[in-house]
């Protein structure tokens, strides 16, 4: 059995220019099926950590490995991004295609799938999430809850090995929030969930890290 973690952050140090360090020699690993919840006050670096993982920010020291390979160059970074899907906090930033089907097929097409295969995979993903009826809808006409769901579908259609979710239930009503929880509980994928909503985190993660404490990030047994 392969015990190599999907993701590992090794002694990461990161600070935005002119600001105190958010992470000092911080290490973290995410194994198969692991469900990690991150919480902490605003500005504690939750979103930054997710951006560091997918290479949208570069640490000043330390490295990030995907399945044991250090994501040091463009090729490794591409590999990491294919295997680790990030669902952004603001779905409007993530949805740019004209229709939901096009949006969901965007990733598979970039993976090199043929048009028909990409469409089939997109439809399959939408059906799996109960969103098939949205396939032909314009992305900018969706409700906030639908946008969140479609953003998740657009990442899942790439069949990633791990999911990073940045405030997936923020600004959602109870129904939409419940739907997201149901979907996540059905997914066996390893994931890191960032949320202020502790109840949401309890339902979607099994281990927790608190950011922004005086001693830096620290694991907490429960919320």
């Amino acid at each position: 059995m392969d015990l190599t973690p999907i993701l590992s952050l090794e002694r990461i140090t990161f600070a935005y220019p002119g600001r105190p360090a958010l992470f000092r020699e911080f290490s973290l690993s995410l194994g198969e099926g692991e469900r990690l919840g991150l919480h902490g006050p605003n500005g504690s670096g939750k979103t930054t950590l997710l951006r560091l993982i997918v290479g949208l920010e570069t640490p000043q020291a330390g490295g990030i490995s995907y399945r044991g390979r250090l994501a040091a160059g463009e090729a490794e970074l591409r590999e990491l991004r294919r295997g680790v899907g990030l669902v952004m906090q603001n779905s409007d930033d993530q949805l740019f295609s004209a229709t939901v089907l096009e949006e969901t097929a965007f990733g598979p097409l970039n993976l090199g799938l043929r048009r028909r295969e990409a469409r089939d995979r997109a439809m399959e993903t939408l059906e799996g999430l109960g969103l098939a009826e949205l396939a032909g809808r314009a992305t900018h006409r969706l409700s906030m809850g639908e946008k969140k769901m479609v953003a998740l579908a657009s990442v899942l259609s790439m069949r990633p090995g791990a999911l990073l979710l940045d405030e997936p239930a923020a600004s959602l009503d109870d129904d939409s929030r419940g739907r997201i929880i149901d979907i996540l509980r059905r997914q066996a994928l390893a994931r890191i969930v960032v949320a202020h909503d502790r109840d949401f985190l309890r339902q979607t993660a099994s281990t927790f890290i608190r950011l922004g404490g005086p001693g830096g990030p620290e694991p907490v047994p429960e919320l």
Partner: peptide, 18 residues
């Protein structure tokens, strides 16, 4: 941010339509 979202889903400069 949109460009970042595209990069994260494997965009490499060529747009493909389904």
């Amino acid at each position: 941010r949109m460009h970042e979202a595209m990069l994260l889903r494997g965009f490499e400069g060529r747009f493909h339509s389904a």
